[in-house]
Computed example of a mutant assay.
Amino acid sequence: MKIDDVNIEIIKELRNGRQSFKKIADKLGITENTVRTRVNKLREEGVLDICGLFDPACLPGHQSVIIGIKLSAANLVEKGEEISKLMGVISASVVTGRYDLIIQVLFKPGFGLLEFYTNEISKVQGINTVETFVIYKAYNLKVPYVL
């Protein structure tokens, strides 16, 4: 799918996910139907998701962590996809640097770091090492509720 300047402007306007297509159309000088059609196409193509995001620090007992993972083999994409499906995983990324993957995980009461490592990460073969970075204070961090 070709992403043009209009698509980018629509995506920017959707930072406020509750804004109507009519308001977006008026602001961009296009028709409401054009906005609706483009948003639907962006969603179908997997370019755009519209969802509610929250700050984990605002919900009691919820916390987000970042985990660096080194793998024993070079099957980065396969392992990234596998890990992305584990409970609590917000995102999994293949990266450069000292880790092969960086993941962000959401915890809640009854499902914390111990449960994640014991019940989720332990299912994945080929992990050499992990390093956990606990987020004590985040700025502009909003995540989908994945638990």
Results as ranks from 00 to 15, higher is better:
K2T: 14
I3K: 09
D5W: 08
V6N: 08
V6Y: 11
I11Y: 11
R15I: 11
R18A: 03
Q19C: 11
S20T: 13
K23F: 10
A25Q: 01
D26N: 14
D26A: 14
K27I: 08
K27F: 12
G29N: 07
G29K: 05
I30K: 00
T31C: 09
T31N: 08
T31K: 06
E32M: 11
E32F: 02
T34N: 11
T37N: 00
T37R: 00
R38L: 06
V39S: 03
N40H: 12
K41W: 05
L42S: 03
L42N: 02
R43P: 10
E45S: 13
E45P: 07
V47C: 06
L48S: 09
D49A: 15
D49V: 15
I50W: 11
I50D: 11
G52L: 15
L53M: 08
D55S: 05
D55R: 03
D55V: 05
D55A: 06
P56V: 06
A57D: 12
C58G: 06
P60R: 04
P60Q: 06
G61Q: 00
H62L: 00
H62T: 05
Q63E: 14
I66R: 06
I66N: 08
I67V: 13
I67T: 04
G68W: 04
G68I: 07
K70G: 04
S72V: 10
A73G: 10
A74L: 14
A74R: 14
N75D: 14
N75T: 08
L76N: 06
V77S: 05
E78W: 05
E78M: 05
E78C: 03
G80Y: 02
S84K: 06
S84M: 08
S84I: 02
S84G: 10
K85V: 03
L86C: 04
M87H: 10
G88Q: 04
S91Y: 02
A92F: 00
A92D: 01
V94C: 08
V95S: 01
V95L: 03
G97E: 10
G97W: 12
I102G: 04
Q104H: 10
Q104L: 09
L106S: 05
F107K: 01
K108I: 12
G110L: 06
G112L: 05
G112S: 03
L114F: 12
L114W: 09
F116L: 03
T118F: 10
S122E: 13
K123V: 05
V124C: 05
G126A: 04
G126D: 04
G126F: 02
T129V: 13
E131R: 13
T132N: 09
F133E: 13
F133M: 14
V134P: 06
I135L: 15
Y136M: 15
Y136L: 15
A138V: 11
L141W: 02
K142E: 04
K142L: 11
V143R: 01
P144R: 07
Y145N: 08
V146L: 05
V146R: 02
L147W: 11
